[in-house]
Design a protein around this nucleic acid. Structure first.
Lengths: 336, 336
DNA sequence: TTGTAAGCGTTATCAC
DNA sequence: GTGATAACGCTTACAA
């Protein structure tokens, strides 16, 4: 009844070859056709499946790729997961997921945990990691690809986008559409995206000759819908802008809701631009104009960089840059 | 420069104990305080981190839980991932993600792959698995929890919801709101949810005394936004219903878009009810009335069942039932 | 309680 | 090309 799980020894015996030959045949290493035939047949017959732990222990490869992101519930990271999953599967590997809650300690903990060697590489989306943590990354026993700001000297591959430039472009677009009182609803400023997008906003104002008005700035507790709604509500209590740049689509979604509650029309009264160009844009009402930061492309690039790096650990680190692009939809046209 | 990675032997030597004692101390098995002290200190000093493969090979535990779902991009599964992630992390384990593309062969392939022993258990969301596949599940070397229809005789724990009943309730609600020409936009009928929700729809019609009108039925290629839009557009070409029941929120989102394109108002002209009560409901316009199928609760329950089952493999299989609940929002009120 | 030693199942290194 | 055999790093009987 409860026959023991077959091991490679079982297969080797049945095929009348050594375990070494069995292993070779099963791993596609050159053998005589005869041996190959007998081994595969034997394996088939007993339903042999190699043990992952044993094979990892010996080969030092786990067949797993780890992906650590700030928040599983954010559609932009979900989109990344989908892209990465494709590449990973095509390479015959598994995807291990980690959610860091955008917490710096968590981000670092995962990098340290790589010493357990549970994965052959890591793709890390980091909101808070900065130059101080380069040493931790450099110490990693397996390749790491960072999606975020390039960390000089860390020796890791990086995929980035110029979200600062993206934010500036958004402001310019709003200005070109006739908007003059452009508010900013941002996420936490101590995050890298928060800081850079703020810079981009002020840069955009400068470029268009608009003055920076502190009362048009609002910061949400987190890059999410509800905080976006609250931040926008606070903003509307003291000011009525004619446009709002939200530093991601979730914030923008919250903003749309707050504007609606306040009886303001979009884009007639207030124009809104988000960032990320996530699937959400097509689904909210009105459809959201957004700065595409190439999430899917970045994720795919990161996964591909990682796969190549795993094959060839010595190759010099590269940085891939995905340029932002404005995608115009309904929430921003000319002033009504 | 390139000192070798420390193993448990390194630690044992440094602490002047046997590797066995080192292992015990590190795994929290009773030792004298003195030994414990010396070992942990030594481990700390050399930065020892246990090797996952070696420990799995010997202990037959991987510390990994696998979650297989039809589609990473569907917010309802994302919500499940979030819930499961919490439980898994609380148990000190890792989450391995698989996306099956709602493909039966993929679903089965993952179950078979468990023989590699890369995970200590699997949570499987299955759209197509049915009684024919019970034997495959029963053969699994590690516990499996199925989120979906209970499979009798498989011996696996199951978490389910009565989506048939949910669909029927939706119809009753629409009827109570004065709707009489209630259309159905469903996903593929050969899936379990597709079939059951169709049954629920007809059951609802029967209960309210409405006649089944074949021309009010439409089937989308997939449970997603774009197919939902297309299916609804087809429907509207031949009929103008006063309500549409969509069998998930993505379909409903597509339906809203098609209705809007057709110049129909919601809920004034046509009421819409979705299913799943995903985060999407709060974000689309108008906000979507939906049948909550308790995704987060089901996911959490599944994860908890799995953890318990891993601890105690012999306990008898249970089935957890999460009842559906109507959540009323803007897309369905009384006829205008 | 601690140490000794035997594996866990595989892959890689040798001679042949 | 193939077959012995030695690791890989850890946990766990078992003996002391």
């Amino acid at each position: 009844m409860s026959e023991k799980r077959p091991t490679i020894t079982t297969v080797a015996k049945l095929a009348n070859v050594s375990v070494a030959s069995a292993s070779r045949a099963l791993n596609g290493i050159k053998t005589t056709p005869d041996v190959y035939e007998r081994v595969t047949e034997a394996a088939e017959r007993v339903g042999y499946v190699p043990n992952a732990a044993a094979s990892s222990l010996r080969s030092r490869r786990t067949g797993q790729i780890a992906f650590a992101m700030p928040d599983v519930a954010n559609p932009i990271y979900t989109a990344m997961v989908a892209s990465i999953q494709e590449v990973v599967r095509a390479g015959g590997m598994r995807l291990v997921l980690h959610s860091t809650g955008a917490d710096l300690d968590e981000e670092l903990a995962i990098v340290r945990d790589l010493h357990r060697r549970f994965a052959d590489g890591l793709i890390l989306v980091s909101l808070r990691l900065n130059e101080d943590h380069v040493s931790e990354l450099a110490r990693s026993p397996v390749p790491v690809v960072v999606i975020g700001r390039a960390l000089r000297g860390s020796g890791v591959d990086t995929v980035q986008t110029d979200s600062r430039h993206g934010a500036a472009e958004a402001v310019k677009h709003l200005h070109a559409a006739g908007r003059r009182r452009i508010a900013l609803v941002n996420g936490p400023l101590e995050t890298v995206p928060g800081a850079r997008r703020h810079e981009g906003y002020t840069e955009g104002l400068r470029a268009t000759g608009l003055a920076l008005d502190e009362s048009l700035l609002e910061t949400a507790e987190d890059f999410m819908v509800e905080p976006g709604r609250e931040a926008t509500a606070r903003l509307l209590q003291r000011e009525t802008p004619d446009a709002i740049l939200c530093t991601n689509d979730l914030l923008a979604t919250g903003a749309l809701s707050a504007l609606h509650d306040a009886g303001l029309t979009v884009p007639g009264g207030v124009a809104v631009v988000g960032m990320d160009n996530s699937p959400l844009c097509e689904v909210v009402y009105p459809r959201l104009t957004s700065i595409d930061l190439g999430a899917a492309r970045r994720a795919r690039a990161a996964a591909e960089l990682l796969m190549k790096r795993i094959e060839q650990p010595s190759r010099r680190p590269r940085t891939v840059d995905v340029p932002p692009a404005l995608v115009v939809r309904e929430t921003c046209g000319a002033t009504a």
